[in-house]
């Protein structure tokens, strides 16, 4: 507990938040991060490893860890769990066939003790594609309502391609984390 309070104090000084972006491959994690940072999203290769971005968001500095989602490297996600304040789970809402994989991976992730206190934002991405499932449907298929009641979570429909919905999602995440860590502003 002593260490925890020291970390809290340091974080408070720097107003820093650590955000972990995960999800199946092809869900749009890197595109979301680049779009929200105002970078070009027209040429993005599938992530081989991970990217880190520090973004000034409102008065906070977000440390975003964007970790590749290919099956081979999913087992390395655990290396990024430590001290995660916010978890962003990205779903390709048009990839109906793999939604079950998606649910299983998310379930496994949420069992992780080191992520127990992290706020969870689920992005139902690719809403711009005709026929993509709506956020309400994603809630049902991923069985989000049956999650542990102590978890703070939120679903947000978005399109990393157009940028729609991204800010609303991150607004919620940042507010939720701030209300836990930096109450006094």
């Amino acid at each position: 507990m002593g260490l925890l309070s020291i970390i809290r104090k340091i974080k408070k000084k720097e107003k820093e938040m650590r955000i972990l972006m995960v999800g199946l491959d092809n869900s749009g994690k890197t595109t979301i991060v680049l779009k929200i940072n105002g970078e070009d999203t027209s040429v993005i290769s599938p992530t081989l490893g991970f990217n880190i971005k520090t973004i000034k968001y409102q008065k906070y500095s977000l440390n975003i860890w964007d970790v590749g989602g290919q099956k081979t490297i999913r087992s390395y996600w655990r290396n990024y769990f430590e001290q995660t304040d916010g978890l962003v789970w990205v779903v390709d809402s048009s990839d109906v066939r793999r939604l079950d994989d998606c649910r299983l991976e998310l379930e496994n992730l949420l069992k992780e003790e080191r992520l127990a206190g992290a706020s969870l934002l689920v992005f139902a991405n690719k809403q711009d594609i005709q026929g993509a499932l709506k956020p309400e449907d994603i809630v049902k298929v991923l069985n989000l309502d049956s999650m542990d009641k102590t978890r703070h979570w939120q679903i947000a429909g978005c399109s990393a391609y157009t940028g729609e919905g991204l800010l609303e999602g991150f607004d919620w995440l940042v507010q939720d984390i701030a209300s836990r860590i930096y109450v006094l502003d």
Binding site: N26, V43, I44, S45, P46, Q70, K71
Partner: peptide, 26 residues
């Protein structure tokens, strides 16, 4: 395409035009 991901493919020829690097797995 912009991105191409190929999983569990065997003995297959791909003729591609792709904006980023294609990936293969298994």
């Amino acid at each position: 395409s912009h991105q191409i991901r190929i999983h569990h493919a065997t003995a297959t020829d791909f003729y591609l035009q792709v904006r980023s690097r294609p990936i293969i797995e298994d």
